[in-house]
């Protein structure tokens, strides 16, 4: 294909990445297919399910609704970038395991991103605030209960200084 390519530079999980991409390449396809960061998942491809959520400059966004070219000059964090610098699981990831906040794991990366976005803005979220924050992320396995529990657990632990 002789599609016109655009050069982009994106910081992905702390690493500078450059690429030449066609205008119509979605951000999630670039992350998954070209960078092989397959932790970010595709669920509905029309912005409803939230499985493809990533952080863009610290805010949760849907990578299926963005083109890769739109990420040029921005900072992207995917689920692969949520661990602590030493590679150990973050408190949030650990709380998800502790509370078994998943089953098939498919929506989990998006849920973690939504939860991270919440906890960075609100260190003591209420039940309702947690449900609102993950309200745009669909899960078919858990009925959300253990996810809500896990986010509460992470908030408590982070408030007492855990990382």
């Amino acid at each position: 294909m002789s599609e016109k390519l655009y050069s982009i530079s994106v910081e992905v999980n702390g690493v500078a990445r450059s690429a030449h991409v066609p205008a119509r390449l979605s951000l999630v396809d670039w992350l998954r297919d070209d960078l092989r960061l397959t932790g970010t998942h595709v669920g509905c491809e029309h912005g409803i399910c939230g499985a493809c959520s990533i952080m863009l400059d610290g805010e949760p966004v849907r990578s299926c609704l963005m083109y890769a070219v739109q990420a040029d000059g921005h900072r992207v964090t995917t689920v692969e970038g949520l661990a602590n610098p030493d590679g150990s699981m973050s408190v949030l990831q650990d709380s998800f395991c502790k509370c078994h906040a998943m089953q098939c794991g498919y929506c989990t990366p998006g849920m973690l991103i939504a939860a991270k976005g919440l906890l960075e803005a609100n260190r003591h979220p209420s039940d309702t605030e947690i449900r609102a924050a993950i309200g745009g992320n669909l899960c078919r396995c858990t009925g959300y209960q253990q996810i809500v529990d896990a986010i509460h657990d992470a908030a408590r632990r982070m408030a007492s200084g855990a990382k």
Partner: peptide
């Protein structure tokens, strides 16, 4: 769970 929270699940896609 640990492989799922770290993005290391291994799905068909």
């Amino acid at each position: 769970d640990p492989r799922f929270v770290t993005g290391r699940g291994h799905y068909a896609a």
